[in-house]
């Protein structure tokens, strides 16, 4: 009962803060809204017994992504008056891309069989699966991260000579 109530409250919070995130003109407020949304989603995962996922979400999104987001806003020089102009030149493309994403994700999610009574998955299982069945995607993600790291260093160093 309590879990159900928490689930809906946290989901509502996630949706509201996500809406605030995309509608606010203040970039820093947007980044903080992302933090609230991530925490709310982590809470939703807790109500679904996905402890590990919830903690990793907090660690990665709130601990790293949001902080880096704040840094990015500061580096763009918008920190004195961090407001965006009120027009978007890529309106049509934005609508097409987001609709496509919603269709794709919605299709995948709705295609899944409904699951009831989720059981807690132990960390042992997660670890073993990551290094056996899912070792290829796991390694692929590492390479993508490494590429991003190298790329950011190259961009940050600029043209020295």
């Amino acid at each position: 009962m309590m879990t159900t109530v928490s689930f809906y409250l946290l989901s509502a919070l996630a949706v509201v803060s996500a809406l605030f995130l995309v509608t606010t003109r203040n970039l820093l407020h947007a980044v903080l809204a992302l933090a609230v949304a991530s925490l709310a989603v982590a809470g939703v995962m807790l109500t679904l017994n996905a402890e590990f996922l919830a903690l990793v979400l907090i660690l990665v999104y709130v601990g790293a992504v949001v902080v880096l987001g704040v840094f990015a806003v500061m580096l763009t020089g918008h920190f004195k008056k961090p407001t965006l102009p009120s027009s978007n030149e890529l309106k049509i493309i934005a609508v097409v891309v987001s609709l496509a994403l919603v269709t794709l994700l919605g299709g995948v999610i709705l295609g899944q069989p409904a699951v009831t009574g989720l059981k807690e998955v132990s960390l042992d299982t997660v670890g073993k699966l990551l290094l056996t069945d899912y070792v290829l995607p796991f390694e692929l993600v590492s390479i993508v991260l490494l590429a991003a790291l190298v790329g950011s260093i190259v961009i940050a160093r600029g043209k020295e000579d």
Binding site: E51, L55, V56, G63
Partner: peptide, 23 residues
């Protein structure tokens, strides 16, 4: 159950508070 991960994870939002205060 994952106490260690928990204390590492819940400790992270503190940075955001400091950034909020500073900005």
């Amino acid at each position: 159950n994952m106490g260690l991960l928990y204390i590492l994870a819940v400790g992270t939002p503190g940075v955001i508070g400091i950034l909020m205060a500073g900005w």
